[in-house]
């Protein structure tokens, strides 16, 4: 007797696939705008809108930055250089350093959300939305779905949170100017608070936590020495130091 193979669903669909058209899966992705990570992200963009206003960019520029750059760290680094009167070269180098991390994130995500027939341009389009929130969504929720629907579901979510973030940027920018001083200050203060807790939460090892602590302590010192390059040097020196100490801790742990 041969063991009977489990019967395939009559439709030939993968488990978890109800056969709905991809545009319906896109809508289902959009609906995940009502989720904790998306709401937290909108809160962070309230902080960004208020910060942008005080950094000397216009409302339209702040909105376009939200759409084109998208990743909050890169945008806040850019605002920091603009507010500090830094040059375009300094800004480009600082943004590059804060954006290199997107490359390994994209490398990990693409094989998860694509299928054999996904056109290349769709991959480049999808990659534009990679920043922490969409990436975590892709690596967890989307990865649990059948391959056929993943890209539609991911793009439905990613495009919606980006448009939402652009709207929140504009609203916050417009409103923070009319607020009493302490409330406007409180909105700007959302950014350092959000980054501190989210960087700590995203840290995988000693090196990342050290980089956070060293970076915070290093900037005021380097600002005294070289106000022009304080941010760049904080990243390069602080990050390299943290990485070296972390690597030493890892090899010691492995030798034991």
């Amino acid at each position: 007797m041969t063991t009977p193979t489990p019967p395939l669903p009559a439709s030939g669909l993968a488990p978890g696939d109800d056969g709905a058209p991809l545009r319906l899966w896109w809508l289902r992705g959009m609906r995940r705008f009502a989720s904790v990570p998306a709401v937290v992200l909108m809160g962070a963009f309230i902080g960004f809108g208020a910060l942008a206003r005080e950094s000397g960019v216009t409302l339209a520029q702040a909105m376009v930055m939200s759409g084109l750059i998208w990743a909050l760290p890169s945008k806040v680094v850019l605002l920091g250089v603009i507010a500090g009167g830094g040059t375009i070269t300094t800004a480009a180098v600082a943004v590059t350093l804060s954006a290199v991390r997107l490359m390994p994130m994209v490398m990990a995500l693409i094989p998860v959300i694509r299928n054999a027939r996904t056109p290349r341009w769709v991959l480049y389009f999808a990659a534009h939305f990679v920043a922490v929130t969409a990436w975590v969504f892709g690596m967890t929720e989307v990865a649990a779905l059948p391959r056929r629907v993943r890209m539609a579901y991911f793009l439905g979510f990613a495009t919606t949170i980006q448009l939402g973030a652009m709207a929140v940027t504009a609203l916050s920018f417009a409103m923070s100017g009319a607020l009493p001083l302490i409330l406007a200050a409180a909105l700007v203060f959302l950014t350092p608070l959000y980054f501190t807790v989210s960087l700590w939460g995203a840290a995988r090892d000693v090196a990342d936590r050290l980089a956070l602590v060293i970076g915070i302590l290093l900037l005021p010192a380097l600002h005294q020495l070289t106000p022009q390059f304080d941010l760049l040097l904080t990243g390069l020196i602080g990050g390299t130091l943290a990485w070296l100490i972390g690597r030493r801790a890892r090899t010691k742990g492995a030798a034991r």
Binding site: P104, P192, A207
Partner: peptide, 18 residues
């Protein structure tokens, strides 16, 4: 790993700046 540490330190610098 180095890239992530540098990016983290850079954002930490922004936190301190703010």
């Amino acid at each position: 790993r180095w890239v992530k540490a540098v990016a983290t330190a850079l954002v930490a610098g922004v936190i301190a700046q703010l």
